[in-house]
Amino acid sequence: MDGAAALSAWLDTLARERRASANTIEAYRSDLSLFLGFMTRHLGEEPDLAALAALRPLDIRAFLAERAREGDGNATRARRLAAVRGFLRHLARRHGGGT
C-alpha cells in the first residue's frame, strides 16, 4: 500500500468510525497531501507503509522546516503536525511498525 492509498483509507476511517466533519476531513487531506508530497521528494520515491513506518523525528522536522520556509505560522505547523501524528499512529495500529 502506498502513502496515498493509506491516506485515503485513514480519511475514510475518520469519516465512518469517528464521524469527523467534512471540514476536518478536508483539512487533514490537505495537510497530509503536503506531507506525503514532501516525503516523496525527501525520500526520492513515493513512501509505502514500510517507508512511513521507518520515518524518524528528523524526517518530520524537515517537513515542518520546509513548511516554515513556505510561510506557515506556528499554529498552522502545529495543526499539520497533529494531522501527521494521527495518521502515523493510525498506520502503526492498523499495520504495525514503529511509528
Rank of each mutant, 00 (worst) to 15 (best):
L55T: 01
D31F: 01
G98A: 15
M1K: 12
T13W: 12
D12T: 15
G71F: 06
A15P: 09
R61F: 01
G73W: 05
A78K: 11
R56S: 08
A4Q: 15
R29W: 03
L34A: 12
L52D: 03
T76M: 10
E26D: 13
E70Q: 13
F87Q: 09
T13C: 14
L81I: 05
R79W: 00
L88W: 05
L11P: 06
L58T: 11
T99G: 12
R85W: 10
I60W: 08
S33R: 11
T40Y: 01
A9E: 13
S21T: 13
I25N: 07
L7R: 09
I25S: 07
R89F: 02
L52E: 02
A62K: 03
D31Y: 02
E17G: 12
I25A: 10
L11G: 08
A83L: 05
V84H: 05
D48S: 02
L7S: 06
T76L: 12
R93Y: 04
L81A: 09
R94T: 06
N74C: 15
L52H: 08
A51W: 03
R80Q: 11
D12A: 12
L32C: 06
D2P: 01
D48E: 01
A4C: 09
A50H: 00
V84E: 12
A62G: 04
D59H: 07
F38H: 05
D48W: 01
R29K: 11
P47E: 03
E17K: 13
R56G: 07
G44S: 01
R69D: 09
I25T: 14
E66R: 13
A4G: 12
L32W: 10
E70F: 02
E46Y: 00
G97T: 06
L43M: 04
R69I: 07
F38P: 05
R67V: 09
A54D: 01
R79S: 05
M39Y: 04
E17D: 14
W10M: 11
F38D: 06
F35D: 06
L32P: 02
A4M: 10
I25Q: 15
L64F: 02
G86W: 09
A83I: 09
R16H: 13
R89S: 08
D2A: 08
R67N: 10
A15Y: 10
T99P: 03
R67H: 11
R69A: 12
L34T: 13
L55H: 03
M1P: 07
G71S: 10
V84I: 11
I60N: 08
T40E: 05
F35E: 09
L55Q: 00
A51T: 00
R93V: 02
Y28E: 08
A50Y: 00
R29V: 09
A68M: 14
D59P: 03
R80I: 06
S21C: 07
A27L: 09
A53V: 04
T24Q: 10
L49P: 02
L81Y: 14
R61K: 08
L32Y: 12
Y28D: 10
Y28L: 03
G44T: 08
A27C: 07
R61W: 02
D72A: 15
P57H: 14
A92N: 04
L55E: 00
A53P: 02
E66H: 09
A53G: 10
R93E: 06
A75W: 14
H90W: 03
G71K: 07
A78E: 08
S33I: 08
R67G: 06
E26T: 12
Y28C: 06
R18Y: 05
A83Y: 04
T40C: 04
L14Q: 12
L52A: 02
T99N: 13
D12H: 14
R94M: 05
